[in-house]
Computed example of a mutant assay.
Amino acid sequence: MEIIAERGLERLTMAGLGCRVGMSSGHLLYYFKTKDELLLQTLQWSEERLGAERRAALARQVPARERLDRLVDLYLPDGPRDPAWALWLEVWNRSQNADDEVRTRQLELELAWHRDLVALLVEGIDRGEFRPVDADRFATRTRALLDGLAVHLVVGLPGTDRETVLGHVRDHVDQSLAATPPSPVT
């Protein structure tokens, strides 16, 4: 994960990776066959680890909004060149030329976040913590917002930092989910 974040997949060689991890390139190719498979399996490993953190955070007995804030915190990159997000950028870039099986595997990783967000929204709505919204639609739009802001953050666009991004997301959630809609600004 770190070497892909440092160099990108195009500049990664199996020989260089093998030296870094103490294996031969032939041994790596035996297990992964291609750099694309190496990338996807590395992303799956990263998402499994992050998924365990996400599930633990969502299982806590605290208000839905607090769990939503934690989900957002886990979703967003820590900053420029975040290794997990570097994997996502590589996968998204390569997915336009990928076969259906690869895109299906990628979609499953993305849908894990989506399903957890929808379930949390439904719970918050049922408990009266969030105003009623179409949870699936809201989750789709929110993930698109998170993805867009995350890309700006991970590539290090000037003027984009984690606190600013978190502020934008908090505003979005406050304006969209407040149990009592905010009064219009006059």
Rank of each mutant, 00 (worst) to 15 (best):
D116T: 05
P83D: 00
L68H: 01
L71C: 07
V91M: 12
D136L: 13
R94T: 11
A52G: 06
E2T: 00
P182R: 00
A98D: 09
R127E: 12
L146V: 15
T164L: 09
E2W: 00
E53I: 10
F138M: 02
D136C: 07
T42K: 02
Q44H: 05
W113E: 02
Q96D: 13
H152R: 05
L111G: 06
P184L: 14
V173C: 08
Q61E: 14
R162K: 05
Y30L: 15
R170L: 13
R141F: 11
I125M: 05
D99H: 09
A139E: 14
S183E: 12
A135V: 07
E47N: 01
F130I: 01
A178D: 15
G79M: 09
L9F: 04
H168W: 12
V118Q: 15
L111A: 10
E48C: 06
A139T: 04
P182W: 04
A5Y: 00
R143L: 15
E37H: 08
L177S: 00
G156P: 00
L149W: 11
P83T: 01
A135W: 10
P158I: 06
V102E: 13
W113V: 10
P77I: 03
W92E: 13
A179R: 10
T13R: 00
P184T: 06
E101Q: 05
E163K: 08
V151Q: 03
W45N: 08
L157M: 13
V72A: 13
L28T: 10
L87I: 09
A56W: 12
H114Q: 15
D69N: 02
L74S: 08
R105V: 15
S24R: 00
P83H: 04
T160G: 03
A52T: 12
W45M: 04
E110I: 08
A86C: 04
R143H: 05
L107H: 06
L89I: 09
A52Q: 14
L74K: 02
C19T: 09
M1I: 05
H172S: 07
R7S: 14
A5W: 05
S24V: 11
E66W: 07
Q44S: 04
A139N: 01
L68D: 04
P132V: 09
E123V: 08
T34E: 00
L117E: 11
A84M: 12
Y30W: 15
S95V: 12
D174H: 07
L89S: 04
R94C: 01
V151S: 03
V21D: 01
V122A: 13
L38S: 02
Q44C: 08
E53S: 15
P158W: 06
W88A: 12
L177C: 01
A59K: 13
L68V: 06
R7L: 15
Y31P: 14
V169N: 10
C19Q: 13
A178N: 07
D126F: 02
R20E: 07
H168G: 02
D171E: 08
M1H: 04
L9M: 09
A57W: 10
D78H: 03
A178F: 11
K33I: 12
L146W: 14
G124W: 09
A52M: 08
Q106N: 03
V154Q: 00
Q175D: 05
S176W: 08
N97A: 14
R70P: 05
A57M: 10
D161I: 08
